[in-house]
Amino acid sequence: MSTPSENSGFSRRRFVERLARGSVVAGAAAVARGALQAAETNPFAYDVGPLAKTDPAWVNWHEVKRWSVGGRAPRRLAFGPGDVLHVAAESQVLRFNREGAALPPLATTGAVTCVAVAGDGTVYASLRDHLEVFAPGGGRSAAWESPGPRTWISSLALGHGGLWAADSGARVILRYDLGGKLLGRIGAREPGRNVPGLVVPSPFLDVKVHPDGLLRVNNPGRHRFEAYTADGECEGTWGAPTAAIKGFCGCCNPIALAVLPDGRMVTCEKGLPRVKVYDAAGELAGVVAGTESFPANMKAGGAPGRGGLDAAVDSAGRVHVLDRVTATVHVFAPGKAGA
């Protein structure tokens, strides 16, 4: 079993001793490791949880309906005559009547980013770099020339006898006549005219025509929306950067605008997906829907191609919000829920 020499006993004792000592060291290390792992929260969490909670006191709209548009990757909404809702989605303009029933869609030649509908039913749909026009009957009647290589049209609005197109790529608003002639560009940085310039980190530039005759344009990089005359004079700005409910959160919000019949502005944000109403003075007048209404959108985040909302207002003053993540339209009416 062992060599009958004198020091073998000694060695064996030593061997056991060493083994014990080794295991104590290993055990101590394991205990120390356990102590280190006791932390349960993520020390690196970028936690927007507390900021995402909406104070119910502000919510003075309630959801009356929600339905799925069924299309892939919907981007923007617009109402046409008779409250027909037009949804720009993939390479189609989907159309729905008042009840949410689908009408025949219009097919575009590529991914459509936004849409506007004239009072006679003419549909202007924009692809990334150019516009396509559909006659009231539904047939494609024209495709307009692309205004430039950087062009990335993200919103359309009709007014002042022509068409306004928000070009996120060139960071300007393009003005067209209805024949497709490019009349001019407004919103470019002009310190002399007190035009600060549009800061558009991602393709969410929006333009709306307000009943007061001015354009409303969001300036996401500066966390506000601005009013422009048709000539490009900047007449006013509203909004401030903050994750609190009164301002615009994140790095580039608001991402979409809509105008209520009484002239108040509806804004949409990404990151913390929420829809709010601002009065003429730019004060928060209420929250249409907080992050709680868009859990999937909240989860997806606001990176372009992932999240985002868009809003449109129908003739009855109800706000239709498109959740790009779930491809769902939520319809909100004024008044607190249950009231």
Binding site: G22, V25, A26, A29, A30, A32, R33
Partner: peptide, 10 residues
Amino acid sequence: SMSLIGLGAA
């Protein structure tokens, strides 16, 4: 990790 270094040392 500490436990593995401890094991190695052992």
